[in-house]
């Protein structure tokens, strides 16, 4: 405890002595964390919107009109089997009458239906996959049941589904990639700043060694210096993000009360975001200086 207080005092002394370097490090972190802080909620928002679209994806298995009750039961057993191995989340049976009702609701001018001979709409199972990505497996598993209507078959959104999934994957990977790049960039910048700080004081470090300072006794103040710069930088970024949220984003949401904002897509709350950002500032600061002193402060 006493040691901790001493090391913090030493770190602050060093920051004061190398103010320019400390400001450079802090600014670097502030910029990186600001970009990260703007990016994370946007990323999560898009991710959430995509997830919702994915939730809407379902597979339809159309049953041919001549199929017997036994054949339909056999198909249902197949779906239940998929459900028990976790591929299918839930399913629903739609009979011919319901199919007609649904169509009637959907059409602008339901009178066309009156002109049809009988009810042309087939029975079907609406199957909700556990994951949108598994719809192909479901189609493959059910396609060859005798109850399936040979022309309508088992289908999902097809093209739309796979494109949506591609988009989702793309957003995921580029998003993660960008976050990693940002973190590494700010890490290297902090490392470089601490390296300057170590270089500026290598004579001092030399003396500390000569009078018997242990590795970590000499190193801790540098690590704390990194953490302090990281924390202050992150705090600045969070303050700036807060201003942007209040001044720009919140107004924009009120003014654009349309499909996008009315959608139930969600993103991270500000306090959780602030917590993550400040923690990552501290970690980046600690790692950045840690890397440097391992390389440049060998005793």
């Amino acid at each position: 405890m006493r040691k901790a207080r001493f090391f913090i005092a030493e770190a602050l002394r060093s920051i004061r002595a190398n103010m320019a370097v400390a400001i450079a490090a802090t600014t670097t972190v502030a910029i990186a964390v600001f970009v990260l802080g703007a990016f994370i909620p946007s990323f999560l928002f898009v991710q959430s919107a995509v997830d919702q679209q994915k939730d809407r994806i379902d597979v339809r298995a159309y049953i041919s009109d001549p199929a017997t009750v036994d054949q339909v039961a056999e198909l249902e057993a197949g779906i239940v089997a998929l459900q028990s191995d976790g591929t299918v989340e839930s399913f629903d049976f739609v009979d011919k009458q319901e199919a007609l009702e649904i169509m009637r609701e959907r059409l602008q001018d339901p009178t066309i239906l009156e002109e049809l001979p009988g009810n042309p709409f087939p029975r079907s199972y609406i199957i909700k996959p556990a994951q949108a990505e598994r719809s192909g497996d479901i189609i493959a598993a059910l396609r060859d049941f005798p109850a399936i209507d040979p022309s309508a078959g088992v289908v999902d959104g097809g093209e739309t589904t796979s494109r949506l999934l591609d988009v989702a994957r793309f957003i995921q990977w580029t998003g993660l990639g960008l976050i990693v790049i940002l973190l590494i960039a700010s890490l290297l910048l902090i490392a470089n700043t601490i390296r300057l700080s170590v270089f500026a004081r290598r004579r001092e470090v030399e003396i500390m060694r000569l009078v018997g300072g242990t590795n970590w006794f000499i190193r801790w103040p540098f690590v704390i210096e990194g953490i302090v710069c990281g924390l202050i930088g992150a705090a600045l970024a969070v303050g700036l993000l807060w201003a942007v949220k209040i001044g720009v984003v919140d107004n924009w949401i009120v003014e654009n009360d349309d499909s996008l904002t009315r959608d139930t897509a969600t993103t991270i709350g500000f306090s959780a975001l602030a917590g993550i950002l400040i923690a990552s500032g501290a970690i980046v600061g600690a790692l950045g200086s840690g890397i440097t002193i391992r390389r440049f402060l060998k005793v």
Binding site: R209, L210, V211, G212, G213, T214, N215, F217, V299
Partner: peptide, 13 residues
């Protein structure tokens, strides 16, 4: 090597 600091702090230089 790790003991060197302990040597140095017990010698005035």
């Amino acid at each position: 090597r790790g003991r060197i600091p302990y040597l140095r702090r017990s010698i005035g230089t």
